[in-house]
Nucleic acid binder design. Sequence first.
RNA 1: GGGGCGGUAGCUCAAUUGGUUAGAGUACCGGACUGUCGAUCCGGUGGUUGCGGGUUCGAGUCCCGUCCGCCUCGCCA
Length: 621
Amino acid sequence: MLRRTVTCGELRDQHIGQTVVLNGWVNSYRDHGNLIFIDLRDRFGLTQLVFDPDNGVSQAMMDAADKLRNEDVIAVKGLVRTRVGGPNPKLATGTVEVVVQELEVLSKTANPPFLPDDLGKLPNEEIRLKHRYVDLRRPRMQHILGLRHRVMQSTRRYFDENGFLEVETPILYKSTPEGAREFLVPNRHVPGSWYALPQSPQLFKQILMVSGCDRYMQICRCFRDEDPRADRQAEFSQIDLEMSFVRREHVMEMMEGFARRLWKDVLGLDVPKFQVMGYRDAMETYGIDRPDTRYDLKIVDVSELAAKTDFGVFKTALEKGKDRPRFNSKKGVVKAIRVPGGGEKLTRKITDGYTEFVKGFGAGGVAVSKVIAGPDGQPMFETGVAKFLEPARQEWLGALGLKVGDTVLFVADAYAIATKAIGELRQKVARDMDMVPKPGVEGGPWNFLWVVDFPMFERNKETGKWVAMHHPFTSPRDDQMQAFLDADPEDEVTIESIVSAGYDMVLNGSEIAGGSVRIHNQDVQSKVFKLLGLTPEQAKEKFSFLLEALSFGAPPHAGIAFGLDRLIMHLVGTDNIRDVIAFPKTQIGQDLMTGAPGFVTEAQLKDLYVKNVVPEAPAKS
RNA sequence: GGGGCGGUAGCUCAAUUGGUUAGAGUACCGGACUGUCGAUCCGGUGGUUGCGGGUUCGAGUCCCGUCCGCCUCGCCA
């Protein structure tokens, strides 16, 4: 085989006169009869080859070149020269071409299902996933694979420099049925016993701290058997981290430094200092715990003013029950968003759509009004709920900062519903108003944000039981520790007021990392388990190894995990997680290329003491 | 589990109100062509309209079921 001396992205004017060997795929061929051009492609770029009979190409070679087709794999030896037909500015190698002297066809292709270019419309995703090896040849996909690689390299460098130890943790792990649904793996040695695949290495990394590792990192695979989304796969990757002898600020500082390094290494960008926002502020002002601060559209609580109107919808909502346990006993709320310039852009049709939209989150609808210039030139309300606002016109204008041309949107409901609905509505309005910058390098800005001071516990909607908002190993904030230990488990008001030492890193409205200071004290851990309704026996059965470890000299420790796939999505500017995973799965967990998951033989099942109870599932014989 | 959108040639799409032999571009095959660069020109092959039923004189089109892909709610400690 003719082995390459240069890649297809390498040749420049300085190489003119050299004899080189190239290997690659035929990206396109332009056959002029007695003159044939080939664009040869590899991961590194494109180079134009010429088969030119005026330059000593034999008839046999012309015949062979004549048969070349897109995606054939070839090796060529030839002379680098200036392009006779003028440069091609679209190619990095566009000033030169290689006059072929030797051709070796390494592999002929069958007619490919599609051509791996980024020029036209992509085939549908089903086809791309089935022939993933063709799809991955596309420059765009090669770029993403390369960027992901660079992120992982940069990650390892940064944490190595900062004293972190890369340690692998088991994939075959113990089932702990809290949290996400688990993937299970039978163990043939003990009939009826099962491993679970880890939702995350959470407990192992804590135990590594107790083990004296001091600082741990791992780029690890995690498994959660829940329905996927555009930004979520059942099998995904985390950059998993844990540190000993630190408090919240130390972790946040280290991780902010990491993000800053990543953006510098990968994109060459300097990221400004992160904002820090309390969970409560995030919920009040943005209606979500991961605010997108790239656009303003702040949410304003107008309950007090709304109570003074004669609008029945507001009044009814304000009478609603006290589902606002974490903050105070206030009942229903009325929340509003001022949309600058909405009067023109947000048509009746669009705002009618908003009512349907918020119904999806359980709210009744959206009340709308517009601010126009009145007869005296001063702003006044018109359309929608204007007549209910007009009596207190100045108060409303003042409270919301409304100007002529604005639209104001209201959602009135019980606290949790109104907050969620208007938070989602805010994001939809921003898209409709074209206020959301494009993602990726051309877009920006990069609004990094820490969200802190989450509640420790929240009520499960169905069972009414306390559940840990982050996970059961999250510590109360240092200044809340004693209050937590002293708290009467029946004292609902106190329990829900306890704030944790957790933190989420949010980028442009998406959670890219989450973590917490961990409990390193057995008493605190036991109290958490108790509040979560675990008896000491149950806690022991599930987590005895952790409790035991904590009893044998546990250092204060804290950690965080980054969603690697989401990080990459931001860095490349895509909203499809499958684009950043080499071999992703579909919505029902299938790999369309390999056909996984598949059926297994009865003999395999018998070995595992597992019986198939789905009669229609055809087992292979 | 619920809601929405989609599935027609290898690929991207079209096909009037249910009406002739389901078309076009591209890929592929054959031919022409010595400076192209998403080459061009001429000709050709290529279809279980996802699958299974039903309605009808007649179904890509209407109805029922089902499979698959995507988006989404629930879910994701």
